[in-house]
Design a binder for these strands. Structure first.
Lengths: 229, 229
DNA sequence: AATTAGTTGACTAATCAAGTCAACAATTAT
DNA sequence: ATAATTGTTGACTTGATTAGTCAACTAATT
């Protein structure tokens, strides 16, 4: 736990920013600030208001600037933190050595749920950070790192996938495209649908309903795409 | 053409707002203002800035307020106009009496493309307008009307779909769910991907590349879900 | 009791918001 | 050609909001 915390600090504080004060905060408060910030930064750096962030996080204005100094550093931290969290709690945990790609998808969905329980806005925040062009914070290239990690992940999953499981009539490549589309779309749509404020028990229940629906879809697709034996 | 214009005015101006000055504008300028407004209102009524709108539309501040009076009326108009446009140029044009639901999807995709060429932000603007809760403009219930029209449309398409085309092993209802997910996800993702500024020839070409990709997916799915003969 | 660390929110100076208006430009009517 | 009307501008006003500060308060530590 302590070790974990330290390595996280090192990665995020690598160049310039000193986020030590913030990182040694108790988890609950830290989480509140992270969630509030990511939620507010969803529609761009410029449009985000630090007043909204402190209101949502239920802390004082001074404290936010005590931790981060400037709005830019706050955003920089959020990018780094989101990328680092994605890596540690999502990408690194995925077992790419699976023959059935539906198993891979199911697994990633579970991890996605767990991550969204902690930080409801990570995914949207990061996709927002990609498209943003009106500011020049590059957060030490963290976004590009994540992008290549993700590309690598997808490639590995597909490399390990057993294509002989597919029906003889259909092109596995085309099928995989469809499968990817369906689940990416589904996961995003449904996860975005849940009110991002909640992190309690009700949110968990909501996600689990979605996951059951997802499992159904998964089974149907298996029946459609795989040859029956 | 004149008749068309008039009926449009009637529907939109129904209660209160006088948008005559704006509606009798030449199409090019009107389109610029509509696109700029919808784009700016994407991330909410409050966060939208009239200064950004006039800059994007390349008109003066005074002119915008000459046409619409207030920001609220501008937003009200945009909601009404977007809904009316969706009805006239999308929902009403869809032929629901088709037996192959892939044909229905293909058809809606073509219409969607045409609509997005004219108003790149209609779909996103309207979905944004749904979730917005921080203002109380209901635009004469136009949004609810659209919602029910859309629900009705989907229901009719599914009612006319020939379920006997599906493979014997799989549940048509579950399959339709997947099909809907895939295409809704695909269309939105890809259409959103195109830079919404462009409305020229390049944008058209981009869309058509997507449509070809879509056609491939469509054929693959037909092969997967329908029984072969 | 004294020192330190954590936390507050009223405050500032600058910017940005919606909305106005006197003045200019382009049409149309006389 | 002139007058009257309509279309259009952008500098301006007033008030809200912005990022960021700081003296003062509380809680923990020495």
């Amino acid at each position: 736990m302590i070790d974990n915390e330290n390595s996280e600090c090192e990665r995020i504080e690598a160049e310039g920013g000193d986020y030590h004060k913030f990182l040694t905060l108790d988890e609950e408060k830290r989480g509140r600030i992270i969630n509030a910030s990511m939620k507010e930064f969803l529609s761009g750096y410029k449009k985000a208001s630090t007043d909204n962030i402190v209101r949502e996080a239920a802390i004082s204005k001074g404290l936010l600037f005590h931790y981060f100094g400037t709005k830019e550093k706050l955003y920089d931290f959020m990018v780094r933190y989101a990328v680092e969290t994605m890596r540690k709690e999502y990408i690194d945990l995925i077992n790419v050595r699976q023959r059935d790609i539906f198993d891979s998808i199911w697994q990633t969905s579970l991890l996605k749920r767990d991550l969204c329980m902690k930080f409801p806005s990570v995914f949207d925040f990061l996709t927002g950070a990609y498209v943003e062009a009106d500011h020049e914070i590059n957060a030490g290239g963290a976004l590009k790192d994540l992008q290549s990690m993700h590309a690598n992940l997808v490639a590995e999953i597909f490399a390990h996938a057993d294509l002989s499981l597919f029906r003889d009539g259909i092109d596995p490549k085309a099928a995989i495209k469809i499968i990817g589309l369906t689940f990416a779309g589904y996961a995003n749509a449904k996860i975005a649908e849940t009110p991002s404020g909640k992190t309690g028990e009700t949110a968990r229940e909501n996600y689990d309903i979605y996951l059951e629906e997802l499992k159904e879809i998964l089974d149907t697709m298996r029946a459609c795409f795989y040859k029956q034996q």
